[in-house]
Design a protein around this nucleic acid. Structure first.
Lengths: 209, 209
DNA sequence: CAGGCCGCTGTGGTCTGACCACTAGATTTC
DNA sequence: GAAATCTAGTGGTCAGACCACAGCGGCCTG
């Protein structure tokens, strides 16, 4: 029974088993997964191996455990682990640079899509929000990323953003006015102008990245 | 000694301890960190707790363990966070569409960067390759992705591409001629024309994605 | 001396069984 | 009926036991 395909770590097998289990039962965020002891039974592995897998997934923010209750699938939202990564080994200069560039590119992609396809009413709602609330730069672009309706791209943005966050690439003082200008161009479906505003006013760059 | 700041999980404390330990000793990728038993001793926690922390960091790709040898810090470039997230929730239908779109966007981003910054000699080498070899569409864009010199973006492309591959979004018959046209525009630094060629000739789409 | 064999030690990999702390729901008690 | 209590189930942690493997040094043999 212990013929685990490869000779390698059991906890990885458990991770894989969990993955297919979740897929098979089409479990969604919020759902409960079997208890550690039951998994340990079902998969014929020690509880400690199961725990290693669960702890790893927990640190990744994929699951959430509540003592006395159980383990639950988590919505891919606020994984705080990523903050760790930043403080961990992210000192390399080149990496920082790539990170910033990639973030910019993705944000521009999102802007393009929004400029083409977003409903005017959604953009207007965003205008209202900008006027009403205090917010950080990444709050704003998170909303842009969501508007673009491409969940995968949104996810990539979130990841890149969380890495970027922890490495103090913080944007300083951007004025609401600039965001509003950007939104206005989006409403007018003027992709060119929108991106120009983004690069020059919001990211303080010259025209060619 | 067991006054762990909060009431929460020990393995997280261990992660934190490791972090500061690495920082304090300024350990770099490749360096060895203390053995599980020693950590367990030094931090006054059970070895299993240490292992939970290490396994989590390992899954994140931050460390690497070699049986019989020890645990080592790993090069951050290779982290598998993104892969994991992908394999986890990538089942539903809409995702396919997002996948294709995202791939296209990233490819366009790469093309833009190449058009601006790639050395003419590198592009010419690619021309030679196209003429000489038989290749698949993704072979070509892998080379584009590499040319762009942004390791992170390249990485994201590879991941998105591998998913796209498995879900048979294969491109049919594209003629070498089209790729050569594209490269010619890149050489001329004509971003506009290059992207137009990409969308219309290579991806068979109308101008606005 | 060179080459290889052997066993010791240290390391990660895994399992087991034992507690503890906590939660939620059933049960009892008033 | 409401409140207090008990209980079963769950995650959190630990200690100790093996195993498999890598590296090293010493010993034997040719």
């Amino acid at each position: 029974m212990k013929d685990r395909t490869s000779s390698s770590k059991i906890y990885l097998d458990v991770v894989e088993s969990l993955r297919s289990m979740i897929e098979a039962d089409s479990l969604l965020p919020g759902d409960k997964i079997p208890s550690e002891r039951e998994l340990s039974d079902r998969l014929n592995v020690g509880r400690s191996s199961v725990r290693e897998a669960l702890r790893a997934l927990e640190l990744l923010g994929l699951i959430e455990t509540r003592r006395g209750e159980g383990t639950f699938i988590r919505d891919f939202q606020e994984h705080k682990l990523v903050e760790l990564l930043g403080t961990f080994f992210l000192q390399d200069k080149k990496v920082q640079q790539d990170l910033a560039e990639t973030k910019r590119l993705i944000e521009i992609d999102c802007l393009r899509i929004v400029a083409f396809f977003a409903k005017a009413e959604d953009i207007k709602r965003l205008v209202g929000w900008v006027k009403a609330e205090e917010f950080r730069d990444d709050d704003f672009f998170l909303r842009i990323a969501i508007l673009n309706r491409n969940r995968l791209l949104e996810r990539i943005w979130r990841i890149v953003n969380s890495y970027a966050r922890t490495s103090e690439m913080v944007q300083g003082n951007v004025k609401k006015e600039d965001y509003l200008t950007l939104l206005t161009y989006l409403l007018e479906r003027d992709e060119e102008k929108a991106i120009e505003t983004y690069l020059i006013r919001i990211r303080n760059m010259s025209k060619d990245e």
